[in-house]
Design a protein around this nucleic acid. Structure first.
Ligand SMILES: [Zn+2]
Ligand SMILES: [Zn+2]
Ligand SMILES: [Zn+2]
Ligand SMILES: [Zn+2]
Lengths: 127, 127
DNA sequence: TTACATAATGTTATTTTATAACAATAAACT
DNA sequence: AGTTTATTGTTATAAAATAACATTATGTAA
């Protein structure tokens, strides 16, 4: 369990508190009062947090969310369900989906180190 | 089977001929001799081609590839295998993977309209 | 502790990716 | 022909990410 540096902690806190994915420049503007002044500081913290599996990047949105699983620090495989109406993003339990995908990969003779899966549709509220 | 407009055809041709995913500005610089001069012209063509399912965006790379399946125009669900060494991108047959994912979704009580899946690893050459 | 190496931070400028806004043409429809 | 709709052309700008280099902090080993 790695301990976070000052900037990493600041960036992680704001992502972790947020109910929605945050963009890098939104994070920046929210942490300027804490002394983080420039994009590279944010992006460096984001990179490390991703490496550690504490946060994930939603590629289709260029936005970042805190990990809602416990095992992503190991597998780095991620899966999300994204509402096209309200933009809500939910992380899908790693173990559940991994079983299906490793199953598929095995039958297809495919190997992989990680994956990212994004489902799009309507959440329960918006349906 | 929708027919392409002039700009759409030009942009599609260059993506389709390419052996690797192309970035928007790479496309732009390659079509300037054909009269496409500015980013919006490229991005508009890309948007339409994606809608039609003729090309896909590799989200993790901000790059575009021609569809290698036949059914993407219907489902808009996409899956790729990406080599982390040589950057090779292969589209995974839609029907194969879809079975697994719809299976998963059903058991999880989840609904979706489309998805995007990107596997990362090493291709056969790089392994 | 001091010297060296490594990691993290601060800062400025720039690159890369994507879109807003509006004018001009072309194509489709009535 | 006249009207609507889609596509194109053009300029400017916004948004996302990184390069490059200086500085400070932290860890490690003599
Ligand atoms: Zn996670
Ligand atoms: Zn919703
Ligand atoms: Zn396809
Ligand atoms: Zn390879």
């Amino acid at each position: 369990m790695q301990t976070l540096t000052r900037n990493q902690q600041i960036v992680f806190d704001i992502i972790n508190k947020s109910s929605e994915p945050l963009k890098a420049y939104t994070i920046l503007s929210n942490v300027q009062k804490k002394g983080i002044k420039a994009p590279p500081q944010v992006y460096r913290a984001l990179d490390k947090l991703i490496e550690m599996g504490k946060i994930h990047k939603i590629e289709s949105k260029n936005a970042f969310v805190a990990c809602q699983n416990s095992s992503c620090n190991v597998s780095k495989a991620t899966a999300f369900s994204i509402c096209e109406s309200c933009e809500e993003v939910t992380e899908i339990s790693n173990s559940k989906i991994s079983k299906y995908l490793s199953n598929f990969a095995e039958k297809a003779g495919m190997e992989y180190k990680k994956y990212n899966l994004e489902f799009f549709g309507l959440c329960k509220k918006c349906k």
